[in-house]
Simulated scan of single mutants.
Amino acid sequence: MSYAEIDTVKRELLVRYLEAWVPAALHRARRVIYAHGYADADGGAAAEAAMRVLAEQSDLVRGRELAMVATGDDLGAISERLSAIQEQSGAGAGLAVHTISGGTDGRLPVGLKAIGAQRVPVLGFLDASGTGSPPAPATVAALTAGKPAEVILVLPAGASTDSLRTGWPLFTSVELAVSDEPGELLAFGTTAGKSLEGFKEALWSVDEFAGVRYRDPGDPDRHLIDISLTPHPGPLRRELLAHLEQVGEATVTELRTFALTETVYRAADATRVLHGLVDAGTVARRPSHGRLGGDVVIALA
């Protein structure tokens, strides 16, 4: 098992999310910015994949402005390849690429400010997994200038996200695991609830690659979860029961929100698990009959 499969999963997730994000962002605003940090960390493969997605939106770009700013230690050759993709797209001046060498922590905040990333849709992708340390908090926080703002982070195994959450009201993370050892930490921060739902859909929609599985950082049993449109419910079941033990009772809506924001799962997965817990008599519901709607109160039996 090599880590090439993990890189493939990360690229596919990025591509899937970008394919949904770009049209929605261009529909919302006339200017849209995508920021790609550590663009040379993987030889430029992820940055090129992202640029191809942007180029495929050439019809939507006309009359609007879609910009990519890429930073890294040395982007000489990568800059040429990104520019070639841009020129071949036929999008003209509406699609722009800005590459800045000299390091992501030192250059990304400056680059975002220079191209006017304030109060326009911004998505950042920062894969720092190969650097040995997370991005500087100021680098991640610089992306919050966008409106709305979103960031996909990849951190080295064992890294903490505590210092990187500032400015992100919604934040979630998942391990990319290949063994029982801690895996790379994939995190997502956003200022919009719909974006979190969209990220979770992309997370579970990627193709399964041999040996690569997810692990919920909040699961005390560290259960490995196969990548699937209908993921194994075990970790979510344990986390919902632990949450109910802590809070006493909660509505279905509150438990769906807990699953979406505090676990690797989607809100719909919580509904599926709650139906099973009610049927098994593990939890009690109030009222005791009828549809399991959002206002139904759930407590441990």
Rank of each mutant, 00 (worst) to 15 (best):
T161C: 02
D162R: 11
S163D: 14
S163R: 12
L164G: 09
R165I: 14
R165Q: 13
R165T: 15
T166F: 10
G167Y: 05
G167K: 00
W168F: 07
P169I: 00
L170Y: 15
F171V: 05
T172P: 00
V174S: 07
E175D: 05
L176G: 03
L176K: 08
L176H: 09
A177R: 09
V178Y: 13
V178L: 14
D180C: 05
D180G: 11
E181A: 14
P182G: 07
E184N: 05
L185I: 15
L185Y: 08
L186R: 10
A187K: 07
A187M: 00
F188T: 05
G189F: 04
T190P: 08
T191G: 11
T191F: 04
A192Q: 15
G193C: 07
K194I: 15
E197N: 06
E197G: 10
G198H: 04
G198V: 00
G198E: 02
F199C: 02
F199M: 11
F199R: 02
F199E: 03
E201Y: 10
A202M: 01
A202C: 15
W204V: 03
W204E: 08
S205K: 07
V206A: 03
V206T: 10
D207H: 12
D207A: 13
E208S: 13
E208C: 04
A210W: 08
A210F: 10
A210P: 03
G211R: 08
G211I: 03
V212A: 00
R213C: 12
Y214F: 15
Y214A: 02
R215F: 12
R215T: 12
R215Q: 08
R215D: 08
D216R: 00
D216G: 02
G218D: 00
G218N: 06
D219Y: 09
D219N: 10
P220G: 06
P220C: 02
D221V: 10
H223T: 15
H223M: 02
L224S: 05
L224V: 01
I225A: 00
I225E: 03
D226A: 13
D226C: 04
D226I: 04
I227H: 04
S228G: 01
L229K: 10
L229V: 13
T230S: 11
T230E: 14
T230F: 12
T230M: 03
L236Y: 04
R237S: 12
R238C: 08
L240P: 09
L240G: 01
L240D: 05
L240R: 01
A242Q: 12
H243C: 06
H243W: 07
H243T: 11
Q246W: 15
V247W: 09
V247S: 06
V247I: 14
G248D: 07
G248S: 02
A250R: 03
A250M: 06
T251L: 07
T251N: 09
T251V: 08
V252P: 07
V252C: 06
T253C: 01
T253V: 15
T253L: 14
T253P: 02
L255M: 06
L255P: 02
L255R: 04
R256K: 14
F258S: 10
